[in-house]
Design a protein around this nucleic acid. Structure first.
Length: 567
RNA sequence: GCCUCAGUAGCUCAGUGGAUAGAGCACUUCUCUCCUAAAGAAGGUGUCGUAGGUUCGAUUCCUAUCUGGGGCACCA
């Protein structure tokens, strides 16, 4: 019996009671409210206190008032039916009307087999099935390496996408490349000067990486100086393209090593480009479309979008007085592109330093005719800082993703960045991420997984085989019911993390699961000791061991963290 | 000034209206002739920033307020 099945039973039972009462009321000529209880309403919780049973429901308290009964009386009627369910050992009514349910051991133990048989699919649900979601994150300018400021969104965004997919959504991870505009020009001038050995422009990008890029450019264009002597503009342009492509390639490479995958790198330039047959650029078309919706006006020589209609604190300029589009204009065009590609919800993952964007992005959605409640989500994350960080080799005072990866490793970094809610400030302590003990949760969880693998290996050698027996009624030890209960919760944890876009719930769950596993390991042996013969208990425990390993593996995968078989 | 996030144990932080508010660290003491002791067991700690409100019930929701972080461009 899974919590989900239990929820369905509870909902059905309560709906029956409600229907029965309505019929009774109608025969007396009284009108009764129609109430439909869903499985989600009835979803039982794992009580903190073991004396409160395996599962607890507050259903009776939640609905008593609307039905017109007192909670304990309603709980009585519900439990009378719950007692009849196959697999329920006993029920109790406690406090103001809690319904506490205890499953029989066999019913609870069945989870072990279910997990093993479903394998990597255990935990996948269809709660977000049919949703086509666009998830944009990182989107750092391709004018330098990724640094600490980008790592949190990279880790978080990739994990959110994995969690959404596990819940059945179709997701596109997108990186918006700001490869048009003045930052690119400034970038080009910086690299150009370095390549020609000229003095850096006043506003040049700092950092040694500019010099390294200049070297790469010279390798590709050995006669750059010669070209520059003839046509300086052409040489600058060639430098810009070469440096840009090189930098973008390095960013992609860093992200792949961070186990972060994008489905689309979207170039801002494509928004400015006119069609082959002279069609308007997407950005020019965007202003027309917004105008049709009636949200565009002109003032002070500029073209504006009335974003205040949708809650923005001020209207935004689309086309400047000098005829050049603003960054906001490109954002709007990109948004429309996403809409045209069929995405319902568009999620933006931004740092707190961009929180002023919420209003204008939401307004774009509204001006485009979308539902600003459901078609756009802006997730704002607080910034991260790092204690005890070594300074970057290349950039001087900025910590680069590459340096962090080399220093701390992808797993530790991914895990720690995904372990906290995005809206809570995060401070990483470098030495802690490197430690291999209890105070480093990523190792604690990975160690638990490695242990399950060690047990499986040893079981094989000792001749304990899963195929020989599975008798879930034997899993009666206190640590076994705890572990089984935790395994049963996993699908609901994933579904919740997906609905709330909060992958940290997976990490916290895994830490609890690892703790339950370690405790179980300490008191329940899979492999017989000494002369003790192999029993069905050992074989059944092997199922449980393998189930625990499977769930840890599944959960770590959602965080983009590996599950090593040995540590 | 306006917007936004946070304030929970000595420290770092979980906790989408439920029962006695939790975890790790730190501190003390135990447990390997035994599948990985990188682990486990035991020991105590709270004005959930403050004050009101909503209700059967509030750390959770609402209002006000205090403190701290971030943000309020015809920059990108």
């Amino acid at each position: 019996m899974t919590p989900q099945e239990l929820a369905e039973h509870l909902a059905r039972i309560l709906n029956d009671i409600i229907a029965e009462r309505r019929r009774a009321a109608e025969t007396e000529g009284v009108e009764a409210e129609a109430i439909l209880v869903t499985a989600a309403d009835a979803s039982p919780e794992r009580p903190k206190n073991r004396e409160h049973g395996d599962w607890a429901s507050n259903l009776a308290m939640k609905f008593a008032k609307r039905i017109g009964m007192n909670p304990r009386e309603l709980a009585q009627q519900i439990t009378a039916k719950v007692d009849e369910i196959d697999g329920v050992a006993k029920t109790e009514i406690a406090g103001p009307g809690f319904i506490n349910i205890t499953l029989d051991a066999a019913s609870a133990g069945e989870t072990a087999r279910r997990v093993v048989e479903q394998g990597e699919n255990y935990g996948r649900t269809d709660v977000l099935a049919g949703q086509k979601i666009n998830l944009e994150f990182v989107s750092a300018n391709p004018t330098g390496p990724l640094h600490l400021g980008h790592t949190r969104w990279a880790a978080l965004g990739d994990s959110i996408s994995r969690v959404l997919r596990a819940a059945g959504a179709e997701v596109s991870n997108e990186y918006y490349i700001n490869d048009a505009g003045s930052q690119m020009n400034k970038f080009a001038r910086s690299v150009f000067a370095a390549a020609l050995g000229e003095e850096a422009p006043e506003d040049a990008y700092p950092g040694e990486y500019i010099g390294a890029l200049a070297q790469k450019v010279l390798e590709q264009i050995p006669n750059l100086a010669e070209i520059a002597a003839n046509d300086r503009e052409a040489a600058l342009e060639m430098t810009q393209e070469a440096a840009y492509q090189q930098q973008l390639a390095e960013i992609k490479d860093s992200l792949e090593r961070f186990n972060v995958h994008f489905d689309l790198y979207f170039s801002e330039r494509t928004l400015h480009a006119e069609g082959a047959n002279g069609e308007k650029s997407p950005i020019a078309a965007a202003v027309d479309r917004l105008r049709e919706q009636g949200h565009v006006f002109e003032a002070d020589d500029a073209i504006w979008v009335r974003t205040t209609d949708f809650g923005d604190d001020k209207d935004r300029v689309f086309t400047r007085g000098n005829g050049i589009y603003t960054y906001f204009a490109a954002d709007a065009a990109y948004y429309l592109d996403k809409k045209d590609r069929g995405f319902g919800e568009k999620i933006y993952l931004l740092g707190a330093d961009h929180h002023g964007y919420i209003g204008r992005l939401t307004a774009i959605a509204g001006a485009a005719g979308d539902n600003i409640e459901t078609d756009i989500t802006v997730l704002i994350g607080q910034l991260v800082n790092l204690n005890g960080a070594r300074l970057s080799k290349r950039a001087g005072n900025i910590v680069e993703l590459d340096d962090l990866l080399e220093w701390l490793g992808s797993d530790a970094l991914r895990y720690w960045l995904a372990r906290y809610p995005a809206d809570s400030p995060l401070s990483l302590e470098g030495e802690k991420l490197r430690s291999r003990t209890n105070d480093n949760p990523v190792f604690y969880v990975q160690y638990a997984h490695a242990r399950t693998c060690a047990v499986a290996r040893n079981a094989e050698v000792a001749g304990v085989r899963r195929d020989d027996a599975f008798d879930p009624a034997l899993l009666t030890h206190e640590t076994e019911t705890e572990l089984l209960g935790k395994l049963q919760q996993y699908p609901a944890i994933v579904a919740g993390a997906a609905e709330l876009r909060e992958p940290h719930r997976i990490a916290r769950y895994l830490e609890e699961l690892a703790a339950d596993f370690h405790r179980w390991y300490d008191s329940c042996r899979v492999i017989p000791q000494g002369e003790e013969p192999i029993s069905d208990l050992h074989r059944t425990r092997l199922w449980l061991n393998d189930a625990a390993g499977q769930v840890i593996r599944n959960g770590l995968d959602l965080l983009g963290v590996t599950a090593p078989e040995r540590l």
